[in-house]
Design a protein around this nucleic acid. Structure first.
Lengths: 202, 202
DNA sequence: AGCTGTGAATATGTTCACAGCG
DNA sequence: CGCTGTGAACATATTCACAGCT
């Protein structure tokens, strides 16, 4: 559930602000949802609040991290060192949440061997073995759409079970593998749709 | 409805492959949904198919473009010329769908005046006037989270009504403005959640 | 006969409203 | 008394199943 992540980020902000306790009302306001929604969402995983008081910020934060599995770090590989890949590699948010990009792989021979920070870019022909050696758990695919299905198969063969895909392609993943697609054109099209189909245009 | 965009992309692939006609069965297979879903989705906007035959690829493609509002081009501004901004600027998919990034704005004085392709980077202090001059319809926000609310207010004041936001912040938009958030950490957390809460771990 | 378009059935998600604990 | 946790009511989304056009 995506909202859990939102709650966690909100709690961390509250925590930095020195708040000790928070009500579902307050939390929902900051996360852009409703109080009932917050309570229902949390109640699926346990009873974390105190009636009459609210939730302990620190405690709920810890619980949510555990539920989301971000009370640990994850070994992540970046496949594709193009423009999107490089932006993702530099993106601080991943690091801050324990998603450690410990491997970068690319097909371009002029890039292979190059170093980004402490990470050497490896040849995509070694993809499967590199992923195994590095005990990668999550792969970020930032390769061209026409290459991504092949890369995906290799990645899943290597035992990776979480995939964040940026290529605009409909991927089929084996049972037991989680896939998240980020398709920016689809997002823009959704905006275009809203702007176009607005009855009360002024 | 996000699936409409998916259908459109699928149709374009079929079209390039020379297909004349497609059934809801076929379309759903390629778009990763079900035949009934496709028919229901399309039926909200009209009757585009022929019974016993299916849908004309070319015709449905045209209809979907019109519904989504991508039968035209859009004037888009990129606010924030950092790593994510530059990756987005170079991203071909936007251009191909008629989302023309005609303006780039940044706060860094060393970047202002620089040219990316034919586009000069403008100073963020001129943001509102630049957006008006350029008749911008959609803004992509790739600025730091602590600056984004301020930028957003400026952007909406300038009459922009569609916003794609990459900053991890909960934004409040005025009535009549469409906002899409892309939060990559949330996506990764969702993956982490699936990997963590998988009962039948082998 | 084949495949759409659609009401009806089902499933899923959200909001309401309140009992019950602190 | 305040705020959570939760069943019940409501709303939305998906799937089923079939009548009806071509």
């Amino acid at each position: 559930m995506r909202r859990l992540g939102l709650y966690l980020h909100t709690l961390e902000k509250l925590s930095r602000g020195g708040e000790e306790t928070v009500s579902s009302e307050e939390l929902s306001g900051r996360a852009g949802t409703t109080a009932a929604q917050v309570r229902k969402d949390l109640s699926h995983f346990g009873s974390f609040g105190k009636r009459g008081l609210g939730y302990s910020v620190r405690e709920l934060e810890r619980e949510l991290k555990e539920i989301l599995g971000v009370d640990r770090s994850w070994r992540v590989a970046l496949v594709g060192a193009g423009r999107i890949g490089s932006a993702l590699f530099e993106y601080d948010g991943f690091d801050a949440r324990g998603f450690d990009i410990v491997t970068v792989v690319d097909a371009d021979p002029t890039k292979v061997g190059e170093r980004w920070g402490g990470v050497e870019i490896r040849d995509i022909r070694e993809l499967e073995s590199v992923l195994r050696e590095e005990a990668i758990e999550i792969a970020i695919l930032a390769v061209p759409a026409d290459a991504v299905q092949e890369v995906l198969e290799c990645v899943t063969s290597a035992g990776v079970r979480g995939i964040l895909n940026f290529a605009p392609a409909q991927l089929r993943v084996p049972e037991g593998v989680s896939l998240k697609d980020v398709n920016l054109v689809l997002e823009m099209e959704a905006l275009s749709f809203s702007l176009t189909n607005r009855p009360q245009d002024r």
